[in-house]
Design a protein around this nucleic acid. Structure first.
Lengths: 108, 108
DNA sequence: TGCCGCTATGGCCATATAGCCATGGATGCG
DNA sequence: CGCATCCATGGCTATATGGCCATAGCGGCA
């Protein structure tokens, strides 16, 4: 441990905050397949284009995605490769939590 | 991919939101060492006890930590083992981003 | 029983976020 | 040039969050 600087936790929090929205998580899942333009992601998310654009700005600012300009369109791509494994691990824990809850329900 | 339900992303977002605060990340880092009572964590974080208690409630509600009562004190412990590896991976990407930024600075 | 220490909760205010609409800037095309 | 398309930004409101203070609940201990 050794007293990591507060700055480190603020940097991590910035990343976590960027992940803390269902629409952004959906976009990241889509980008895990292939790079996409804002219009693609707007269709997928089903929100206003300006809303999607702001979500993408958050992800970009956090360093999670990269953007590439091609003509009129801007393609976003995933920069962080460890998301899939992370969610898989987290969901494993959540499933276990559910099981334990159910066990408590039955025994009471 | 195949159209995961919106519910999944809301569940993930709940976890991400729980991670999205420097004080909570600091607590999780501390809990990675050993379980701790609220008083320990209050000292480490340096905020009001009620604030720390609320932070812990968020982490518990997200299923990231567990709590155990022992006499008057309540000990919290980490339930998710994949945090260390995740942050290590993320910070690798962020470092790379920094390097690229510096390269752009030099070349301009 | 009565007091004290450890946690949790409610109240309150300041700030941040998400959403949409409207608009602006940039690029390509005829 | 004039227009259309794609994306980003500003304005606005509603809601959520974080912080502290005050206080309540709970378990131990004399």
């Amino acid at each position: 441990m050794k007293a990591k600087p507060r700055q480190l936790y603020e940097a991590r929090a910035k990343v976590a905050k960027a992940l803390a929205h269902p629409s952004r998580l959906l976009m990241l899942d889509a980008l895990a397949e292939k790079e996409m333009c804002v219009c693609d992601l707007t269709d997928i998310v089903g929100a206003d284009q300006s809303t999607v654009s702001k979500h993408l700005a958050v992800l970009k600012n956090a360093g999670i995605v990269a953007d590439r300009k091609e003509g009129v369109m801007i393609f976003y791509s995933l920069k962080v490769a460890c998301l899939r494994g992370f969610w898989s691990c987290v969901e494993g824990v959540l499933m276990q939590n559910l099981k334990e809850q159910q066990a408590v329900m039955r025994s009471s």
